[in-house]
């Protein structure tokens, strides 16, 4: 447990803005270790941008950079991201 660490719930608003859906209940699968879990529960770090990491293996799942009206999203660390649109409203 790192003192600087947050969890994915802290980025709920930003994720909803980007994906247009409630994302904390979406399930992401780590590309590195295969662990699946809700986005709200993954580890979140704030460096120059936001870094979402796997709670199991610490691999980067997702990066988001916010710059003015622009957003950059790196999803390379997610093997899959499952949204249930019925839940995500």
């Amino acid at each position: 447990m790192d003192a600087l660490m947050l969890d994915g719930n802290a980025a709920a608003g930003l994720l909803q803005e980007i994906f247009g859906s409630e994302m904390t209940t979406a399930v992401g699968t780590c590309h590195a270790c295969g662990t699946a879990g809700e986005v709200g529960g993954v580890f979140l770090y704030r460096g120059a941008g936001l870094v979402f990491r796997c709670p199991q293996c610490d691999a980067v799942l997702m990066k988001i950079v916010v710059g003015g009206t622009r957003r950059w999203i790196d999803l390379r660390g997610l093997r899959a991201l499952e949204l249930d649109l019925e839940l995500g409203t």
Binding site: V66, G68, T69
Partner: peptide, 23 residues
Amino acid sequence: LVTGEPLRESQQDPKKEDEMPPI
């Protein structure tokens, strides 16, 4: 922690948004 609400609010003013990161 500043989550969704302030960010949406700040979208109305891109300059203000730039000064207020989501967290």
